[in-house]
Structure formats: structure tokens, C-alpha cells
Design a protein around this nucleic acid. Sequence first.
DNA 1: TTGTAAGCGTTATCAA
DNA 2: TTGATAACGCTTACAA
Lengths: 357, 357
Amino acid sequence: MTVPLIASRQNRRAARISDVAAAAGVSTATVSRSLTFPDRVRHDTRERVMEAISRLGYTPNEAARVLRAGASRMVLVVMPQRYSPPFFADVLDGFDASLSAHGYTMILGSLDGAENKARRLTELVFARQIDGVIILTGHVPTIDGRSILDAGIPSVGVCAEIDRAGFSAVVIDDEDCAIAQTRHLFDLGHSQLMYLAGPENYYNEVHRYRGFVKATQNAGLDEKMALRLPGDYSFASGVAAAQYFLGQSPRPTGIVSACDESAIGFLKTVTQAGVRCPEDVSIVGFDGIEFGEFCTPTLTTIRQPRRELGAAGARVLLEGLQGKSAPPVRRTLLHGELLVRGSTGPAPKPRSRHLQD
Amino acid sequence: MTVPLIASRQNRRAARISDVAAAAGVSTATVSRSLTFPDRVRHDTRERVMEAISRLGYTPNEAARVLRAGASRMVLVVMPQRYSPPFFADVLDGFDASLSAHGYTMILGSLDGAENKARRLTELVFARQIDGVIILTGHVPTIDGRSILDAGIPSVGVCAEIDRAGFSAVVIDDEDCAIAQTRHLFDLGHSQLMYLAGPENYYNEVHRYRGFVKATQNAGLDEKMALRLPGDYSFASGVAAAQYFLGQSPRPTGIVSACDESAIGFLKTVTQAGVRCPEDVSIVGFDGIEFGEFCTPTLTTIRQPRRELGAAGARVLLEGLQGKSAPPVRRTLLHGELLVRGSTGPAPKPRSRHLQD
DNA sequence: TTGTAAGCGTTATCAA
DNA sequence: TTGATAACGCTTACAA
């Protein structure tokens, strides 16, 4: 189903290339060349053309250029369903800075809400309105038997690898970071851990949980000493996990969270219930969002290189966009870094703790 | 200066309308009509056409449609220089939901970074690639003697009125909200206030500060009892203000902040220095971002109806987009709401307080 | 170095 | 109800 186009009110007719050509006393081809290949035009001719352009306030009609050239210089960034604005804002900044420096415009589309959002994005790509795609989630939906990835335009996964072969990715070492989170707690003497998960089957969740499991196994910890609670990267799921935690006895003393928001929700909720952090419970977040410095206590976490992820993602995409042939598929690995702050401390002495409610 | 277009690699040639027409044994006009005006085509003809479309995986080329129809169904959202992702994310969601339901695609552009960002956005609009504009800041830069507002396309200010006559706006009652913030502190007995400002000359800052001044004057408070500290809606400016505050003696006991981030930065910094909140100092934020519930103490603030701002802004723009003639200019006023939480309490008894460092 | 002219893929007008 | 055809405004062979 296509919505009919409604022509917008034209006030004064916009200048066309032919107007400029007439004003400068040259052909339209010369105007076009003056703009795109300045050195293929005689100097004084170009001056006349430029003067006419600025006098008439001419801007080339983008639709006509796109149609003729078969390229739109637009890049679509696909956001996951549940996303954290504090986290992604910096990544997007990284994209935007690089892309706009190279003449590309960034379009943002999110996969949340109804299916028709995903449909519109897919159509946009197949309508040849998009030259390249950056995907911030591992999975892209298939609509009417085709997905954005089928359009055959350069596409790169950032923050998450795309769940289909043949695409480059820029990611961090999620698994190692989760190992670092977990080890940090072990090093502090914790032996009863809890894992606060992200959305099931998400790339990041899978890898982070894998790291958590490896680290606990390495430490010889029994599976049962490392409970996994569901979550979705929201404050709310941290609160829910905290409520579960408060009902436990004995309680775990170390919490590994798959993101900062949930960690902060958890932190606040248990603190309010009288549990002290880090004396009674230690918690490690993941992402390094700015809030982590402003909650109480400050949040120990994994700092992700957010702008660098954005910049590197843009760079990889630009290679695909500008090269004559498809560049080799590759995986760029950046590194997260453990940031020890106030929310983690030595495990409490092994005394049973049911200070409850 | 225009960047040359580089045609993207075509794998298999995309189906065109003529391919569909041939496959269905009709003319291209009939294919077009089947898509746009289904009821002007005989039922069985349309069925054949639709079958061919889905068999060939045909999607109309957007550039061609845009060129021919003179409308792009794209809406540009202009973000201010300094913006708060946690705040604007919900507003954007509000836009996106309404716009995409009406067949429009949203493009995001920010004014931060170098001038060339603003230039690209301006060109995009003059290139007739954009049907409508939503502006989240009062001021839009002029580049080469023209601004986005000069393009003559429907434009609406959201969260801030545009600093030029002739444009509709959807805003909240900033001034009244600031009065409510300030009164709340007076009601609690505070008489030495401090105002933590937003960026100079921003629409919101101007109105909020005006409300603050009015409320203090109404209360008969001396100008000197109400210091204004500069800020820019960031955590950092809250921290800076806190450092100034800590150096004061006696200190103000009530802080009115122009945004939540600064308030939280302030809160954290003074708390860490041993000042108790709300016993020694009360603070009121502005915006109602989610994190306000998770800092310690929770933040008293003004809750803005963010999604409603987005939805209303989209609605006003859509009127301009869909109507035959320009709708009347009007100002839609929504209301913020004081949310009393933990960061405000009765003014301390008037004893001098230099508990310092 | 410059100009001529043929498309790019649609949609809308007009005629059948 | 359908079809032929002329735009939409630009870029780019190719010719001069």
C-alpha cells in the first residue's frame, strides 16, 4: 500500500539548472561540471557560473541527482528494539561526524513499535533511497520475504555482529569484558554471584553471558552459585531483579549486570531496602554511561569506547561505499575497559545475612 | 562544493515499473494506478499487477517518485547544539510514531559540531529533499544568507518557539513551571536561592529564568538572595556550580535548576562533600528524565509530557503537510507538572552553616 | 573547453 | 477502465 504523494505548496519556483545556465550564458552541462568537476571548466566560465548560482540561490534538486546518478548519499542507521539513548547517542555522534564529513546524510530508524516501522525501513532501502546501512543489532527482521540485508548495498554491524555471513562488523570484546566483570568480583572474594541479563538471544547478551559462565566455571564455581535473572537493558528490569534478590536468603553478594541501566535500577532498589553497597553487595555494570558517575555509590562498570565504535563503523562503511568493488569482510575489534568505582568492594565475611526488609 | 556521486554496485538489476507492466500484460500507468489508486483499476487487473509485483520483488524507485511528484515524504528534525538524549529520545519517539503512521520518514540532524553540519541540513532542505521540518531549538543558523526556515516548507517549533514570526509551535509553560519550582522552595521555607541556568539566550532558558525571577520578586526576595550560575544543560555544569556553591558562606539552601542533568551533577557533588540533601540544601530539577528516580535522593523535578510534545508536534506539522493551504499559525501549550520527590525538604533552621569540606 | 541530447523511473494528463 | 506520452531536473557520453 502506497500513500499518494501530495505536492507541497510552491511559493516562488525554485531555480533550476537551466535558469543558472541561461543567467551565466552557458549550457546546463557546464553548470553541472562547474559544481562537480571544477577543474574541467575554464576559470572565468566557472566564476560566471558560480556568480549566477549564488545570485539565483540555486541548489541542485537532490531527487533528480539521485535518480540520474543512482546514488543517494544517504546512510540508514538501524536501532534495536530496546535501546539506551545514553549509550547510543555517542555512537551515533561518531557515525554522524565521519559520514557528514564525507558528504553522506544519516537517517535513523528504529525497529521498535509496530511491524510497519520495519516495513518502511525495508522499503526505503529497496526503493534505492539508501546507499549504505549500519545495523546496531544482530538481527534484522524479514518483511514479505526480504530484509534490509538482501538489498545488496554495503552494510556493517556495529556493537553487534549481524547474524548472517558476509557482513563486516565493528564490535567490542563482549565476552572478555564480561570475564573482567566477573573476575573483578572473584578477586574481591565474592563467591555467590547473580547475573542480570539482557534481552534473550541478543548478540551482546549471548556473548556477555558466555563470558560470565566461562569466568565462573574457571573459578570452579558451581552453576547454582550463579543465578541468571532475565532483563531487557532497562531500569525497570534492574528493579525487578532487585525485588527478587531481596526475597532471597542467603543472598548473592556479587552482581554482574549486562548493562548500566539495570545495574543502577538494582542498586537503587536494594539500597533503599537497607542493603548496603558495596558492604553487603557489589555490583558491576556494563557500558559506562554518564549516569554511572552520578548514582550512589558510583558504578563500577565496563567503559565502552562509544565514539570510537561510531567512527570505526563509519570508516568501514565508507570503504564499502567508495570502493569500486566490495571490500573484504572483516571484523574490527575494540576493547572495553573495567572501570572500578564505588559499587564494588570486598565480599562480606561469610556470616549468614537475613537482615531482611 | 558538491561531492561527485558514485554509483553503487548493482548486483542484479532492480525491477522497474516497466518490468512489472510487461509481466502483468498492462501499461506502466496501470501499475502505478494499482499502487496509488487501487479502486480506479478493475479488480482482476489489479490482482494480476499485484501478483507480478510480488513475484518480481518490485519496489517503486523513490527518487523517481520524488522527482516526479515534487514531494519526498521526509521530515527533518533539527536538534539543538547541546541536547539531552534521555530527554529528547521520548520526544523523537512521539514524532516517529505519528509521522511513520502517515507515511513520512523522519531524518535527524543536529546542529552541533562544525558549521558544515548546519550547511548540509540547509542544503538538504533547499534541494527539495525535505517536505517539512521540526525544530527543537529556538534559533536556526543562517548559512550563505539563508536558513532552513527560508525554504518555505511547513515548519514547526517543538519544545521551543522559533525566533521568527510565522511558525507554529508546541511548547510547555516553561515560565509557569519555573514559578512552580521556585514556589515549591519558598513553600518549604527557603529564602536563599540559587538558579542553575541553561545556555544563554536559549528559548527555554529565557522563559525559565523569567519564571524564577518573577517568583522570587513576588515573594519579595532581594535580587541578591537569588544568584544565577551559568550552565549548559550538562552534568558538568552542575558539578561546576556545586563547586562554586561549596565555596560560599553562608550557602543558599534552595537550588532551582533549568534541567535534570545539571541538578544531578550538583546533587552528587555537594553530597559527596558532606552536604546533606534535603536537610542542608534542597534542589529542584527540570525535565523529568528517568534517572531522576534513581539518584540519591530521588530528584524533585518538573515532569514534561515528552511523548505528548512529540505527538502534538507531529500533528501540527502533518496539518501543514497535508492541507492544500497553509494552516493558521498557532501555539499549542502543554503543561509540565511538579513532581515532588526526595531532593527537597524544609529549609534548615536559620543557623549559619560552614560545615565546610 | 563547451554544447547537445539521451536517459534515470516515476506519475499525471489526455485520449481511446 | 486502460494506454501512450510528456514531463520532473539532473548528469554524462559524445560531438563539436
